[in-house]
Amino acid sequence: MGDAIARALSQSYHTTYCEVIIMNREQLTQQNRRLVQKLLLIIGGMFCFGFALVPLYDVFCEFTGLNGRNTIKAEQQSQSIDSSRVVRLQLTTSVSPGMPWQFKPNQHYIDVHPGENKVVKFSAKNLSGQAIVGQAIPSVSPGLAGLYLNKTECFCFNQQPLAGGESVEMGLVFFISPDIPEHISTLTLSYTLFNVTDVTEAESHNLQAAL
């Protein structure tokens, strides 16, 4: 690459021009090469930056609730309860195409005091004859509210295998932070269930790391 650039550069001037130009040809070639190297560095950097946007976006979303994804496990249970307020948490599910499971919350909503630890259950049933592994992906709306929804235990932290025809009840233990802004009175927690049976072992590792 370096040689090719040097050759390209050596072509760049005509003798007549060089006879009169104040700078000699060697010097100009050097200068051009240095500038090209700097520009290539920027280009490489921007290519990497394109990929770096992926983790940057995740971090940004985690701090701002930008995309409403809520995958972080809360370290501890709630300490204080604000019993002066009631917040409604709506629960909803979707099953992605090609996933022959039934997947539903056992209740459509739950009213809680901020800070109160609560359990809600979801039922899943494999309607097909084969063993299938499912992965539920959470999403909270409004996205900002996701920052205040803390899950201490959730089936979404792990993949869920089910044999053909088998059914299971899955729990979610959560609390809503007492510092949730006044204007949020209702929040919605949605789970979309995906079929991850085909995802290989190695990839499922990556997935968990990513989550």
């Binding site: 921007m46 930056f49 990929f51 992926v54 992965q135 992906i137 991850v196 990513a210």
Partner: peptide, 30 residues
């Protein structure tokens, strides 16, 4: 110089998402 490499990165991610099983843009894989 600043943005064409970002386009290159974008289409590369589309390529790997479609053919090599990555999940940059698929909710199923995070």
């Amino acid at each position: 110089i600043a943005v064409m490499p970002v386009l290159a990165a974008t289409v590369t991610m589309v390529l790997t998402d479609k053919y090599f099983g990555t999940s940059f843009f698929a909710a199923a894989g995070g």
